[in-house]
Computed example of a mutant assay.
Amino acid sequence: MKYLNGYTDTLTPRQIKDILGIGLRQTYQLLKTKPFTEMRVGKGNLYSKRFLLLWLEGKD
């Protein structure tokens, strides 16, 4: 997944939306599922790129 190399180890929901090519509402629904754990930073949430990669590979 070379196209993810330009991203930091943590992703915002908007970045995940852009990576997956889905809507923001679908992104938030996806992020509520088990493999995604959020880190609260200020008023926003960040998600691990590693968990996204595992989910994409079907290894959740």
Rank of each mutant, 00 (worst) to 15 (best):
M1P: 10
K2N: 15
K2M: 13
Y3M: 11
Y3C: 02
L4K: 05
L4D: 01
L4Y: 09
N5F: 05
N5G: 08
G6F: 09
Y7C: 03
Y7A: 01
T8L: 08
T10D: 07
L11N: 03
T12I: 00
P13H: 02
P13Q: 09
R14H: 08
R14T: 11
Q15H: 06
Q15A: 11
Q15D: 12
I16C: 04
K17P: 01
K17M: 15
D18T: 12
D18A: 13
I19Y: 01
G21R: 11
G21S: 09
I22S: 09
G23V: 08
R25K: 04
Q26D: 14
Q26K: 04
T27C: 04
T27H: 00
T27M: 01
T27Q: 01
L30T: 01
L30E: 01
L30N: 00
L31Y: 00
L31V: 02
K32Y: 02
T33P: 04
T33Q: 13
T33L: 06
K34C: 00
P35A: 03
P35G: 05
F36V: 02
F36K: 01
F36Y: 09
T37G: 00
E38A: 15
M39N: 06
M39Y: 13
M39G: 02
R40L: 14
R40Y: 11
V41M: 12
G42T: 05
G42S: 07
G42L: 04
K43W: 14
G44S: 12
G44V: 07
N45W: 04
N45A: 11
N45K: 15
L46K: 15
L46V: 13
Y47W: 15
Y47P: 03
Y47D: 00
Y47Q: 05
S48V: 07
S48T: 08
K49R: 14
K49Y: 06
K49L: 09
K49I: 07
R50L: 14
R50I: 13
R50C: 07
F51Q: 15
F51V: 07
L52H: 03
L53I: 15
L53Q: 15
L54W: 06
L54E: 14
L54G: 03
L54A: 13
W55H: 05
L56H: 03
L56D: 02
L56V: 00
E57D: 10
E57I: 11
E57T: 05
G58R: 09
G58I: 06
K59D: 10
K59Q: 13
D60R: 05
D60T: 08
D60A: 04
